[in-house]
Amino acid sequence: MKAGLILRLVLIALLLALVLRPEWFAFAFAPFAPEGGPVIYQRASLLSLSLSHLGLVAAASLAATVLAGTLAILVTRPAGAAFRPLSRTITNLGQTFPPVAVLALAVPALGFGAGPTLVALFLYGLLPIFENAVTGLSTLPPSTVEAARGIGLNRWQRLVRVELPLAFPVILTGVRLSVVIALGTATIGSTVAAKTLGEVIIAGLLTNNTAYVLQGGLIVGLFAVLIYDALVSLEVRLARRLGLERKGR
């Protein structure tokens, strides 16, 4: 526990330093830069790239959560059960389409910039959230659901007060998977001029500057690890409170 906390603090400090004071690391990246070439990416501030990267991921994940969550709620109602296969097909479609193809197709419609990236991340994020939300909502403890009816909660009250809170940890797992996928996928958004950390990596690839690639990759990787870790601890805490860990693990 203690060691884990220290490791987390170290990683957070490292990430902040990489974003805010990249020049401190010139010594480490220098061996990877071409002879006489720049070592630290200067064309845009890493902070603003990070913020816009995270912003894109957050916006796309939020939209995916809302849509996938709503779909999952609808298809887990008795009246919506018939639509479950159809909605599964739709969300699966988002995953089978390569993100690069989504970008290429979305550019003519939405132009260069953040738009196509948002669409790609959104489509990519739907499936894990939908699958987990459906699982969470359809595997609630039967006696609890029964009790919720028995004490006189109406459908809406049952959903909001009992079903969603109980399914929440499982839904959160889906959100976590989708966010982590989006963090990585967002980098290719820079091929269509979205402002993301992918810009650093792509610049590195174009100019044969491994230092840039490492820098961009390291920052994206650290964000992914830390966000993943934060969401896992949230899930564990919630699940523990619901007494789920008692049922064996």
Binding site: S143, T144, L166
Partner: peptide, 20 residues
């Protein structure tokens, strides 16, 4: 049904407490 049930106490087989 839900109005009827608010007037009738129901102790379910195997408690059925809300875990959250």
């Amino acid at each position: 049904p839900h109005i009827l049930r608010r007037r009738i106490g129901y102790a379910i087989q195997g408690h059925g407490l809300f875990p959250h």
